[in-house]
Nucleic acid binder design. Structure first.
Length: 787
DNA sequence: AGGCAGCGCAC
DNA sequence: GTGCGC
DNA sequence: GCCT
């Protein structure tokens, strides 16, 4: 590797090597887009291989490697142990290292070293051997931190290239004193120079926040920040000669380059023991090991995955699969007929496959499980299958649908051969439904009334939902969405979907998810999920995200700050008012509300509303309106005949809230209507309530809706979520816009889909009319369950 | 290769 | 403007 | 992740 051949006779040479290493580095971590950083940092490593960088690989027991656990990687422990492992594992590196150590630790070398670098030493006024550097010395500030001595530069720089780039002594401007999170800290960067622009920025930033940067090994060092491409073994090789010991002193924090970035962003010294700051080891961990790591006991079912790894996101390669699904035009596809991916084990439960996927369409399945009304709706869709569902501007969409589906009976066209998978897939997905429009929008078919208890795919759904939630935690919005949509599709199926081909046919299930569905069907597990939920940080994330008003961003901050428990948050974290309440009633808000209690809550509110204004009509929306047996919270919509603005109902709301508060029913407010005059917003109230005799706080929302918007609002607040988004997407495709206020047409969008005008209100008050106009068959609320 | 719904409220 | 919730 |  990098230390390769060269003999290093002196430290110059030694650092030259460092530079060489360094030159390969590059990154863009210093961007401060919080979202991006969060994503990068908290998203699970996309390939199972890269997972190895953190806790997983560390945790796996590797008899031959001594690093048994995470803590071994941290500064506080085990440097000796790891060093021995280095010796064993990487002889070359070790040889170099020890040579280095020998060379560098010779007395004269040390002399040269310190002689040439007095400024660094002198820059610390009180070279207190004790780590307690007072902040006052730090206040002597910027220049103290900078001024690398000529001597050191000479030594550290590759003379030629470095010269010009030599930064003009741009004084580091310190942030206000109280923000200097690194005050009193002396940081040693590896490589120990600012040659790379990104590292330079990192160093400068650290100094802005009070750090002292040292290029030389001094006893004052509190932190070692290592560029991410350095492996632990390399670092130890470099440091041992400097430290003259085999392990890093316990009081020195050794972390990778994410550390300062996080600290600065969060304005706090984050917990350095988190896995994301661990320096990677050079321990090779193979993909195979990685994959089955958590599933040791289940080896029997192990999969025989091919090695093609072009797909960085998961080890799954669907190519064969896809071809299989294309080629197998035989109606009798076996569940395990797909080549090579699974080792079909005999103990895999024989799926109760009703029939070949080719002969059964999703729509038929839906119909089987459907009540009469939706039956009708579906029949309607199918009847209109080849006809325009809408009377208007559908032209652009039609071609695609006719192309894919002009005549289902002629599907063997030569064109198919050119793009086998896509064509096949597309056509399959659309042919039964007839119209591309209907296939693409969940709202067209809605839910089925197949309950979770009886759904043949309930187990698969459960697992995929967990995947969805996992991705949600990771702020991977779109994967989360995809999995939820896939669940929605699955929920509508009347038969157990247990093969790739079956699954792949269905809308919103692509190669990746189809593969996973098959894995679940065969093994009962999803390794990806098993892995994911083992991540230590995932627990915390789950915990913190349970707090009302704490989302992925805040939760990640908490984690980076090192908080481990809700109590940590109570005592240490700064929380907003709402978050405080959410924390105080963590368990309350996490408790589902049984339907009968929902009804009881409803009665209380309605009884209170009546005397205030008998004309106001309270409606319980949300999952209650969809007929759910329990709900997470309760939503009220208040509307009144003749009203056209939410504002018209303000008086009602304030009166209602104050009365309910005085009776003790409402226990707190979380969000109250804003009172901007110029705009008729100010329509929602969020808070908490209790049922008399029951101490559990419940989340409750009030919504003011003018009669003119009640239809749209009902759609909105009845949901579910997927159904709504689907409706809106459909509207948008028709150059219309659907929101909680109404359905608008002739919406014009400019470049960058900027809204050019509001569009003309088509319908707002009549729920059914909105369905109609959008060409969506009417669905009762209970049939809008799509996920 | 780009989109994925759109808005109100707190901070 | 961001974060969050719906 | 899926879809266009």
């Amino acid at each position: 590797m990098i230390f390769e051949e060269e003999e290093m006779d002196d430290k110059d040479e030694y650092f030259r090597q460092l530079y060489a290493l360094n030159d390969s580095s590059d990154e863009e971590e210093d961007t401060n887009n919080a979202r991006e950083i969060l994503k990068q940092s908290s998203r699970p490593p996309s390939s199972s291989f890269s997972v190895s960088s953190h806790s997983f690989s560390a945790r796996r027991s590797q008899p031959s490697k001594t690093l048994g656990n995470i803590s071994a990687i941290h500064r506080t422990t085990s440097a000796p142990a790891s060093s021995t492992s280095v010796v064993r594992e990487t002889p070359l590196l070790t040889r170099k290292s020890s040579k280095l150590r020998y060379d560098i630790s010779t007395p004269e070398m040390n002399q040269t070293f310190s002689a040439s670098t007095p400024p660094t030493l002198s820059s610390i006024p009180a070279p207190a051997p004790q780590r307690s550097v007072s902040t006052s010395e730090l206040d002597t500030g910027p220049k103290l931190n900078m001024v690398p001595s000529a001597g050191i530069n000479a030594m550290l720089s590759k003379p030629d290239e470095r010269k010009k780039r030599k930064r003009k002594e741009t004084p580091v401007i310190l942030v206000p004193e109280r923000e200097r999170i690194f005050a009193g800290k002396t940081i040693f960067f590896i490589p120990p120079n600012d040659k790379h622009s990104v590292r330079e920025a990192r160093i400068t930033n650290a100094m802005k926040y009070g750090a002292t940067w040292t290029k030389k090994w001094t006893p004052d060092i509190t932190h070692i920040i290592v560029d991410k491409e350095y492996k632990f073994e390399q670092i130890m090789g470099m440091l041992k000669p400097l430290m003259k010991t085999d392990s890093i002193p316990q009081n020195i924090i050794l972390v990778n380059d994410k550390y300062t970035v996080d600290c600065i962003r969060d304005k706090i010294l984050v917990d350095e023991t988190q896995s994301r700051y661990i320096i990677r080891r050079d321990v090779p961990v193979t993909e195979e090991q990685e994959i089955r790591q958590p599933a040791e006991p289940r080896k029997a079912l192990r999969i025989q995955r091919r090695k093609s790894k072009k797909d960085q996101d998961t080890p799954d390669d669907h190519t064969q699969r896809s071809e299989a699904s294309t080629q197998s035009q035989h109606p009798q596809d076996q569940p395990d007929s797909s080549p090579g991916v699974w080792l079909p084990t005999t103990n895999a439960e024989p799926p109760v496959i009703v029939e070949s996927p080719r002969e059964r369409s999703p729509m038929l399945d839906v119909a089987l499980g459907e009540g009469s009304e939706l039956d009708t709706a579906i029949a309607e869709i199918m009847r209109f299958g080849d006809l325009p569902l809408d009377d208007d501007d559908d032209e652009e969409e039609r071609p695609s649908s006719s192309e894919g589906n002009t005549d289902p009976d002629h599907d063997g066209s030569s064109e198919e051969d050119l793009r086998p998978r896509r064509r096949t897939k597309k056509r399959k997905k659309f042919q039964k439904q007839g119209d591309a429009n209907s296939a693409a929008y969940v709202c067209m078919t809605g839910g089925t009334g197949i309950t979770d208890e009886t759904n043949p795919n309930r187990h698969t759904i459960q697992i995929l939902e967990k995947m969805s939630k996992y991705y949600g935690r990771m702020s991977d919005t779109w994967r989360e969405l995809s999995y939820r949509k896939a669940c929605g599709t699955l929920r509508k199926q009347g038969v157990w979907i247990c093969t790739f081909d079956q699954a792949f046919e269905l809308p919103f299930i692509g190669e990746r998810i189809a593969t996973k569905i098959e894995e679940i069907a065969i093994t009962g597990h999803l390794r990806r999920l098993d892995n994911a939920e083992l991540e230590p940080e995932d627990h915390l994330l789950k915990l913190f995200l349970g707090i009302y008003n704490v989302g992925p961003v805040e939760a990640s901050k908490f984690i980076r700050a090192g908080y481990k428990t809700l109590d940590d948050l109570r005592t240490k974290a700064r929380l907003t008012k709402c978050q405080q309440i959410g924390l105080d009633h963590y368990d309350d808000f996490a408790t589902r509300i049984p339907r009968d209690q929902m009804t009881a809550l409803g009665e209380i509110v309605k009884a209170m509303a009546k005397p205030i204004d008998p004309d106001v009509n309270p409606i319980i929306g949300g999952s209650y309106r969809r007929g759910a047996k329990d709900s997470g919270d309760i939503d009220f919509i208040f509307t009144k005949p003749g009203t056209t603005h939410a504002h018209d109902l303000h008086y009602f709301l304030s009166s209602l809230v104050s009365r309910l508060t005085s009776t003790g029913f409402l226990t707190c407010a979380l969000a109250t209507p804003s009172h901007r005059r110029d705009d008729d917003s100010g329509s929602k109230w969020h808070g908490a309530c209790v049922l008399p005799g029951n101490p559990i706080w419940r989340r409750i929302d009030f919504l003011l809706v003018p009669e003119s918007e009640i239809g749209a609002a009902l759609i909105y607040f009845t949901g579910d979520d997927i159904f709504n988004r689907s409706m809106r997407l459909l509207a948008s495709r028709k150059n219309m816009r659907l929101n909680q206020r109404g359905l608008y047409k002739d919406l014009m969008r400019g470049p960058g889909r900027l809204k050019l005008n509001e569009g003309e209100l088509v319908e707002g008050s009549d729920e059914k009319r909105i369905f109609e106009i959008l060409g969506v068959p009417w669905k009762k609320p209970e049939n809008r369950i799509c996920h």
